[in-house]
């Protein structure tokens, strides 16, 4: 810690590095709420924000700590259903507290299903995270209590009120979502650049070596599971409360888990920016493909064909990225920036 403090004091503030975040804040809080159409907010920005946050969470676990998880959407489900129940059963609980409690619930479940990671490596662990996926989905469907005995297991979002302001409109939900994402992303950013973050990377790169140099491997892994599940849980709350508004356990299926994994592969493992680039890609790509298909093939391109060709193109992209650009869109973005930079100077 002392070394870090010294570093911080010595390095002058880099204004160029602050320019991009500043522009993003202006866009996120100024331009979008003022000008974006409600279609843009409802159909693109809200799912984008929720998936980005989930990807940030999974990236922490898989990208930084090297523990492959195929159960992300189970933790989203835990977050969403926990938030629903806390809000329902505790009178007057502020929304922020609900979200934090939901995150803590997801973290708890995450630690339980992370426990096998203390003994297991690689594929054996990946398969055991599938247990979380199936168990959580089964429990939420089977026990009516979780959905307040709704006959089809569906939960609906409550009124969203923060400090007396109702946030039920599209813009309100967007502001809630974007603020949550920014706060949590900033915290994760701090974390990965701290000693703990370096422990994560050490465990990922060589677990035995990390143990030899004194990294508390077991604690580090469980911490990664806990924090990652916390973030994914909160992402689940955003998914359920700000984007879909009504969700059922079946909505958090294995395909959603794969989707989040694909986001971090396409965006770039172990990159904060990658989670956002990947999520933007995954949200926009089906819309572009359906427009393109309809344009090129007209009526031949029905929803069945669209669904299948979407799968094929997505699968092909995954393989292409793994072969040609293993660091994902994030690295592509960097190269592009460097090329433009070298041309202008």
């Amino acid at each position: 810690m002392a070394v870090q403090a010294l570093d911080a004091a010595r390095v002058p503030i880099d204004w160029q590095r602050l320019a991009l975040p500043a522009v993003l804040v202006v866009v996120a809080y100024g331009l979008i709420p003022a000008y974006a159409s409600s279609y843009l907010v409802e159909a693109i920005l809200l799912p984008f924000l929720a998936l980005s946050l989930a990807a940030v969470g999974l990236n922490l676990l898989t990208g930084y700590c090297g523990q492959l998880s195929l159960g992300s959407s189970a933790f989203m489900a835990v977050g969403a259903f926990a938030a629903y129940n806390f809000n329902l059963r505790v009178d007057g609980l502020p929304l922020a507290a609900t979200m934090i409690l939901a995150g803590i619930s997801a973290a708890g479940i995450g630690v339980v299903f992370g426990l096998p990671s203390l003994r297991l490596r690689g594929f054996y662990l990946a398969v055991s995270t599938l247990a979380a996926q199936f168990f959580v989905q089964w429990a939420l469907t089977k026990f009516g209590w979780f959905s307040n005995y709704n006959p089809s297991g569906v939960i609906s979002a409550p009124h969203l009120i923060v400090a007396g302001f109702p946030l039920d409109g599209a813009t309100g939900r967007y502001l809630l979502s974007v603020t949550t994402v920014i706060v949590l992303t900033a915290l994760v950013w701090r974390l990965v650049n701290s000693a703990t973050g370096r422990n994560f990377i050490a465990v990922r790169d060589n677990e035995t070596a990390a143990r030899v140099i004194g990294v508390p491997v077991l604690r580090t892994k469980l911490l990664a599971f806990a924090i990652s599940s916390f973030i994914i849980g909160v992402a689940g709350v955003l998914w359920a409360f700000t984007y879909l508004r009504t969700v059922e356990p079946a909505g958090f299926n294995l395909d959603r888990s794969f989707q989040i994994l694909f986001i971090i592969i396409i965006g770039g493992l172990a990159s904060m920016r990658g989670a956002f680039l990947g999520a933007a890609f995954i949200v926009v790509f089906p819309l572009v493909l359906s427009r393109l298909g309809a344009f090129l093939f007209g009526g031949l391109f029905d929803s069945g064909v669209l669904d299948m060709s979407q799968r094929i193109v997505l699968g092909a992209l995954i393989i292409i990225f793994l072969i040609a650009e293993p660091s994902g869109l994030s690295a592509l973005f960097d190269r592009l920036k460097r090329r433009i930079g070298s041309r202008s100077s």
Partner: peptide, 12 residues
Amino acid sequence: MATLGLSYIIEG
């Protein structure tokens, strides 16, 4: 992960 992508392609 590549075989995961592959399974999407083959299914599709």
